[in-house]
Amino acid sequence: MAEGTGRRPKVDPDSGVEDVTMLILEWLGEQGVGAMIRVDAERLRDGRPAWTFAASGGPLDGGMRADGASPAECMGRALQALREAGLAVPF
């Protein structure tokens, strides 16, 4: 994987974070973290934030979850939470 650029994505639907989501998941796996992103059709129908990122294991003390109304919002929140948990995600 390429070295990180030091960018810090914001919770912004135009940030482009969804473009690197698969690279983030792969990097997390390399760190021993199991992670996934999913959409919940029922929450989508109900107009609630339907996207969820979940991760656990490796250097994380416990599991973590981030929700958002779009993949970009969800991943932006997830990156913030991962960094707050001490993981220097290089994207």
Rank of each mutant, 00 (worst) to 15 (best):
D19K: 13
L87Y: 06
L23H: 12
A54N: 07
R48N: 04
L82D: 03
T21Q: 15
A54Q: 12
A55K: 01
E84A: 15
L87E: 05
E42G: 06
T52M: 09
D12M: 04
R77Q: 13
E30Y: 08
T5R: 12
R48G: 00
L25V: 01
V20F: 11
G58E: 07
R8D: 09
G6E: 10
V33K: 00
V17K: 04
R45S: 11
G57D: 05
G47Q: 08
A50W: 02
E18L: 10
M75S: 03
L60Q: 04
G86Y: 09
A35S: 15
A78H: 02
R83A: 09
L60R: 04
P59K: 08
R77C: 08
A55E: 02
D61F: 11
P49T: 06
G58W: 07
S15G: 09
A41G: 14
A69I: 07
L82N: 03
Q80C: 10
E26R: 14
D14P: 05
T52S: 11
A78G: 03
D61G: 11
L25F: 00
L79Q: 01
P90S: 05
G34C: 09
L60E: 03
V33T: 06
A78Y: 00
G32T: 04
L25R: 00
T52Y: 04
A55G: 04
R65G: 05
V89Q: 00
S70I: 08
P49W: 05
D12N: 15
R7S: 11
W27Q: 03
G63H: 10
G58S: 08
G63M: 10
D61P: 13
W51A: 00
T5W: 14
M64H: 02
A69M: 13
G63E: 13
A72K: 04
M36E: 11
M1R: 12
R8T: 08
E3A: 13
